[in-house]
Design a protein around this nucleic acid. Sequence first.
DNA 1: CATGAATGAGCCTTCATTCAT
DNA 2: CATGAATGAAGGCTCATTCAT
Lengths: 193, 193, 193, 193
Amino acid sequence: MAVASRERVRRAAVKLFATKGFHGTGIRDLAQAAKLSSASLYHYMGTKEELLAEIMVDCLGRLLETAKATIDGVTDPAERLTRLVTLHVMTHARQPNETRVVDNEIGVLSPRLRRSVVQLRDSYEQLWSDAIDEGLRAGLFHTEQPGVTRIALLEMCNGVARWYSPRGALTLDDLAGHYVQLAMRVLGAPDRG
Amino acid sequence: MAVASRERVRRAAVKLFATKGFHGTGIRDLAQAAKLSSASLYHYMGTKEELLAEIMVDCLGRLLETAKATIDGVTDPAERLTRLVTLHVMTHARQPNETRVVDNEIGVLSPRLRRSVVQLRDSYEQLWSDAIDEGLRAGLFHTEQPGVTRIALLEMCNGVARWYSPRGALTLDDLAGHYVQLAMRVLGAPDRG
Amino acid sequence: MAVASRERVRRAAVKLFATKGFHGTGIRDLAQAAKLSSASLYHYMGTKEELLAEIMVDCLGRLLETAKATIDGVTDPAERLTRLVTLHVMTHARQPNETRVVDNEIGVLSPRLRRSVVQLRDSYEQLWSDAIDEGLRAGLFHTEQPGVTRIALLEMCNGVARWYSPRGALTLDDLAGHYVQLAMRVLGAPDRG
Amino acid sequence: MAVASRERVRRAAVKLFATKGFHGTGIRDLAQAAKLSSASLYHYMGTKEELLAEIMVDCLGRLLETAKATIDGVTDPAERLTRLVTLHVMTHARQPNETRVVDNEIGVLSPRLRRSVVQLRDSYEQLWSDAIDEGLRAGLFHTEQPGVTRIALLEMCNGVARWYSPRGALTLDDLAGHYVQLAMRVLGAPDRG
DNA sequence: CATGAATGAGCCTTCATTCAT
DNA sequence: CATGAATGAAGGCTCATTCAT
C-alpha cells in the first residue's frame, strides 16, 4: 500500500538523518531502511533535501500548533511556561530523532527551504519569549538578561533529545516534572517545593 | 613554511566542519580554504577522519587540562563550579567552531577514534559531576536528580557555542557571569545577589 | 477513445523527437505531452524505439507512395523532377517535424529496424536518380557528377524542414516554385524564365 | 602527458557526439574512447554540455576566422563566393564530425551557452549574405528570393558532411570544384564552362 | 482502458585518496 | 614541498519498462 511505503520512507529518513546526519545518509541507505529500491524512493519524495525540509516543517508545525493549543487561555505566566516546558521536554524525549534533525540540520537547507523552517521555529520560540516577558513584568521571574536566559533555558530543554532514553529509570512524567523545576529556577521563580 | 600550512589546514577544517558538517565538507573545500591543492593537503594530515579526531582530541584535551588547572586546590564546591562554568562558557564563546565540531561530529568517528574522544569528554564531565556531588553532600546544592541536573546544566552551557556572537552587546565577562548565576540557580544554590 | 489516444502519442512523439531528439526525449516527456501516464503509453506503442521506427516508416512510406503517384505516367524528366521537388519541398515545409525525425534519427535505430527505413529512403531517392539520369540522357540536364549533383540537390531540398516557417511571408507555392527553379539550375537545365 | 589526454577527450567527444548524438553519448562512452576513467575525464573538461559548447565554439570560430582571412581584400563577389564555398565544402569534407556536431546539436545547449554559438554561426553566414548581396547588386547573380537562395545554398553545402567519404573516387579538389559550379548555378551566375 | 507502484540499470558527477614527477 | 594526473567507489537522481489492480 502506498501510504505505508510513504510512511516507511519518512520514518527511515528521520532515523537516519538523526543518527548519521543528512550528508552522512545516502539515498541507498534510505532505500534499504525503507525496504524499497532507490528508484522507488522517488515515488514518495522529491529530492533528498525536500524530504528533509518536509520532515522539519511537519515536526515543527505540529509542535507549534500543540504548544498554541496547550497554552490557549492560560493567563498565569508560570503555568504557561510549565506547560511549554512539559510539552517541549516530552516531545523531545518521545521523538528525539525528529527533534535532532530539526536542531542539527537546518544549515543544510537551501535558503528557500530554510526560510519556512526558520519561520516556524521563530514563531515557536516567540511563545516562550512572551511567557517569560509577562512573568518578568508580573514580578514572578527575575533575570537581568531575559534574552540570554530564554535561550539558555531552551538549549537546556533541547538537550533532552540528545540523552534521554526511555529504557532508563526516569519516566516521562518525572523527566518533565524535573525540567519544570529547573526551568523555574533558571527563571528565578520562587521555589514551590 | 610547513607549520603555517599545517595551521591553515587545521583552521580551515575547524571552520568548515563546524559550519557545513564533516560529511558536508569536501576535501576540495578544505584545500581551497587552506589555499593548497587537495593533494598537498595530505602532507599535513592523515585521512579526513583522522584530521577530525585530531581536532577533537586537541580541543577537548586542552579544555580538560585547563579545567583541571583551574580548579586545582579549590575546595569550595560552589567556587569549583563557578570556575568550571566560567571556563566552559568562555571557551564555547571564544571557540564556537571547535566546540560545535566536538559536540556534533562525534558520531562520524569510527569506534577506534571515537573511544579516545569520548574518554576525554567523560573525564571532563567527571569534574562537573564531582563538584556537584560535593556541593550536594555539603548541603550547598539541592536537586533530586543529580544526574539529570548535571546534564541539563551542561547542555545549557554548551548552547553558548550555538548562539553567542562577539559582535553583540554582551561581553564575555557578562556572559560568563550570567551563566554562573544560572548554574547556581539550576543547582539550587542560594542566590548570592 | 483509443484511436485518439494513439494519435496523441504519435503526434507528441513526432514533435518531441524532432525538437529534442530521440535520446533527449524521455518516456515521461512523451506521456506528459500525450496526456497519459507513462504506463498507459504502452497500450499504444511498443518500445520507444519501435515507436520511432513506426513514425519513420509511415512518413517515408507515404512520401514514397505519393511521389510514385505524382510522377506516374509523366515522361518528361524535367516535369518529373518538378513534381518531385514540389512534393518534397511542400512535404518538408508542412511536416518539418516528421521530416527532421527521419533525417536525423536513423542512426539510433537498431540494424533490424533501420533496414526497412533505409530501404524506403533508397527507393524514394531512386525516383530522383532515375529522373535525373533520364534528363541527362535526353540532354536536358548537364552535370559531370550526377551522383554528387543528386545528393547536393536532395540536401538542399531537405533543408527546408530546418528553416521554413509558415508564419513567414513566403507561401508554400512560392517556396516550392522557387525551389523548382533552384533545382533546374543545379541540374544545368536551361532557365525557363 | 596532459595535453595528449585533453586532446584525446576532445577527439573522442567529436567522434561520438557526431555519430551517436550528444544525448546518445554517455560519459562512460567518452571515457572509454579517450582511454580514461570517467572520473579522470573531469580533469579535462567541465560538464558534458560545456565540452560540447567548447567544441562548437572552437570549430565555428576557426571556420569564421579562416573564412574572413580567405576573402580578405577580395572584391569580386563571384570570387568571394567561390572561396567561401571551397573553404566550406573542404572543411565539411575534412572534418565531418565537428561539422555535424555543430549542425545537429545546437538545440541541446542551454540558452547561455547556445548564445555564443549562434552568434558565431550568424557572423559566418553574414559573410555569405554579404557576398551574395553584392553579387546581386553587381548584376552577377540573379534570384528573386535572396534569403531563400542563400539558405538553400548553405544547406546544400552543409550536406557534404553527411555523405562525403575520402575513401570514394572523388578528390577534395574535385568535390570543391563541383560545388563551386553548383553554387554559381544556384545563384544564377552565367556558367563559366 | 488506465495507472500507481515498482525496479534494475544507468545517468552525470563528485568523492577521498594515491602517486609519479 | 607541491601538485597535476589519475581512479574506484559512491554520490543523488532518472531511465525505459513491467505488472497487479
